[in-house]
Design a binder for these strands. Structure first.
Length: 603
RNA sequence: GCCCCGGUAGUGUAGUGGCCUAUCAUGUGAGCCUGUCGAGCUUGCGACUCGGGUUCAAAUCCCGGCCGGGGCGCCA
């Protein structure tokens, strides 16, 4: 028997037709004579029915019944039969195939299944087995229609991206997975070389240098759906291997790249959601993002910005503020607007917020209520009417609002204020889960100074073009894309001038010798006519998970690693045989009976 | 490296010191049932993460390990 139809396409139009269906037995219902089976495949479910009083071939009846007896849950079977209309009143309106059924005349077991460790049928989220179990039997988990829907959504997103970029002369190029380990950035996954004992490839953390060399090559516009690898601890939105939609363009300025990315995302959005996405996206300077929201990827689905009031209250004889000012600290306010639910924040709630703030390392929090008579609280008396007026103006305070103030070191206040903002939004239910708020954060500093060593490190990566004359404080020609407070992608214009690139690497502490050793090949490439260029890399896993409202990117990756970077389905990583190691001239230090003398003997 | 939460039949759960020979559902085995659709009915099966401790008594309390998850650090 050969399949003639899928389980999702049988309908009223097929009545009377002889068909062959093949798929998985999802549920069966035995009424003591008449039998029902739900046969499922990737496209849908069709009801099979066996009726002992309606068997065309009496001689084959026993064999047919015997075969059907073996149709256990999740076994793969092949059936031949006739499509017929269901008895009136027994149609299933929830199922697109629910008006028809297939009367089984032939049945064959293709592949039996053990009883599955959990149920494959559609079920409520809270009835799902633990993620651990789902990942161990991922091939069964993926069999669920919801997971198939996720995989299709992801596929569609990538198709739409390809379609859009192909139409705009972007060239899809595969860059190597076996690459050079470079000193900057995350920890590398290393691959030992058999041919060059003691030498290693690194799996790419991103195709950054290769795509830039493609620009030198004159490719003009490049993209790649690129797997990237970073050996750092995972999070709900971080896996050791992940996918970037990576692109790069030549002869462009920042606006060109931003516009190209907005058009790309709008195209994807329209294709997946059917509705136009409003562009251009909001934009925020990095410094303002930090000042107002305490993070470089703020969630602008809600308000509650911070307002710095340090200078405004500088002369107020309020001791707590004065102590902070003496230590060159900062004082910021957050206005919980009446319309955001300030009334819901009573004295008890404020006390809870104060202890929450203390747990985050600040001394406390002060507050004022805005009433018709003006500001009210036990500290208002320390502020002159002019100062009160200034605060009201600066924080856009109106009657019914609640003003919260944090004081401490600038970094701590920013950080805690940002977290408080998110906590308030969650507590007051200000986040519209259906809203998708894109945001560009632009003008990030090129460098970050290590507070302990004073050493400069690159905030993004060392190839970002400075927006002005090179100095430790210079801003970069950068643009980070955020969606709902999550960093979706990071892009910039790059340095196409090799001497500028050298200066930056040198400011990052690389000696000429090291620079030559680690990046010489790339600097050399920049010396052979590198066009001005820039690009971006978008996190595909994050984009898909946010668009589908999933809590973790593991939900949108077919075979993800778990928190401890184990692959539950294949059990990797595993130890390997000693002969494999010795072929690579390697010896593990992670073995129980290791005798250090053995190593010394080898030297 | 650190902090927090969790671990009870195959799966999801109830059980906060003795009422536990551990609840319920689902699953699974057997039987019944001719229009169901996550069919129904009867009945059998099946579990306290591991080690140590406290106690007359531990699924329950304490300590440690293992496993899973969230986070900090880390992630140019």
């Amino acid at each position: 028997m050969k399949r003639t139809h899928t389980c999702g396409e049988i309908g009223a139009g097929d009545l009377g037709r002889d068909v062959c269906l093949q798929g998985w037995v999802r549920f069966s219902r035995d009424h003591g004579g008449i039998l029902f089976f739900d046969l499922a495949d990737a496209y849908g479910t069709t009801q099979l029915v066996y009726d002992p009083e309606d068997v065309p071939d009496e001689a084959g009846k026993d064999a047919l019944e015997k075969a059907l007896d073996g149709f256990t849950r999740e076994s793969v079977v092949s059936v031949g039969g006739t499509v017929r209309e269901r008895i009136p009143g027994t149609e299933d309106p929830r199922n697109p195939t629910g008006e028809a059924e297939v009367l089984v005349k032939e049945a064959e077991m293709l592949s039996p299944s053990h009883p599955p460790p959990f149920e494959i049928g559609e079920q409520k989220e809270h009835l799902l087995p633990a993620e651990e179990t789902r990942l161990r039997y991922r091939y069964l988990d993926l069999r669920r229609a919801e997971m198939m829907r996720v995989m299709r959504f992801r596929h569609r997103l990538l198709s739409l991206a390809r379609e859009h970029l192909d139409d705009r002369s972007f060239l899809e190029v595969e860059t190597p997975l076996l690459t050079r380990s470079t000193p900057e950035g995350a920890r590398d996954f290393l691959v030992p070389s058999r041919v060059h004992p003691g030498s290693f490839y690194a799996l790419p953390q991103s195709p950054q240098l290769f795509k830039q060399m493609l620009m030198v090559a004159g490719a003009d516009r490049y993209y790649q759906i690129a797997r990237c690898f970073r050996d750092e601890d995972s999070r709900a939105d971080r896996q050791p291997e992940f996918t970037q939609l990576d692109l790069e363009m030549s002869f462009v300025d920042r606006e060109d790249v931003i516009a190209a990315v907005e058009a790309l995302i709008a195209h994807i959005w329209k294709g997946l959601h059917g509705e136009a996405l409003s562009t251009p996206f909001l934009r925020l300077g990095h410094e303002e993002a930090m000042d107002r929201y305490g993070t470089d990827s703020p969630d602008l689905r809600f308000g509650l910005p911070m307002t710095e009031v340090t200078s405004m209250v500088a002369d107020a004889p309020y001791e707590i503020f004065q102590r902070v000012l003496a230590k060159k600290g900062a004082i910021v306010g957050i206005n919980v607007k009446k319309e955001d639910g300030a009334d819901a924040v009573g004295r008890n709630e404020i006390d809870r917020l104060i202890s929450w703030v203390k747990r985050h390392g600040l001394g406390g929090m002060t507050w004022m209520k805005v009433s018709s008579a003006g500001l009210e609280s036990n500290i208002v008396k320390y502020f002159t009417p002019e100062v009160q007026h200034g605060l009201t103006e600066a924080m856009d305070a109106a009657e019914g609002d609640l003003l919260l103030f944090l004081a401490g070191s600038r970094e701590k206040v920013r950080e805690t204020g940002g977290l408080l903002r998110e906590k308030l939004a969650a507590d007051l239910d200000l986040i519209d889960e259906d809203k998708h708020q894109f945001l560009w954060v632009v003008d990030c500093p090129l460098f970050e100074k290590d507070p302990v060593s004073g050493k400069l490190t690159a905030l993004h990566h060392p190839f970002v073009r400075p927006a002005g004359e090179l100095s430790p404080d210079v801003l970069g020609e950068s643009y980070d894309l955020c969606l709902n407070g999550v960093e979706l992608g990071s892009g910039s214009l790059r340095n196409h001038d090799s001497s500028l690139q050298r200066s930056i690497l040198s400011m990052l502490g690389l000696s000429d010798e090291r620079m030559e050793q680690e990046f010489g090949f790339f600097l050399e490439a920049l010396g052979y006519g590198a066009p001005p260029h820039g690009g971006i890399a978008l996190g595909v896993d994050r984009m898909v998970s946010i668009m589908l409202g999933k809590e973790s990117i593991r939900e949108v990756i077919a075979f993800p690693k778990n928190k401890r970077m184990h692959s539950p389905v294949d059990g990797s990583p595993t130890p390997v045989d000693d002969d494999k190691l010795s072929e690579l001239q390697l010896m593990s230090l992670a073995i129980d009976d290791l005798d250090l003398d053995d190593i010394e003997d080898l030297e």
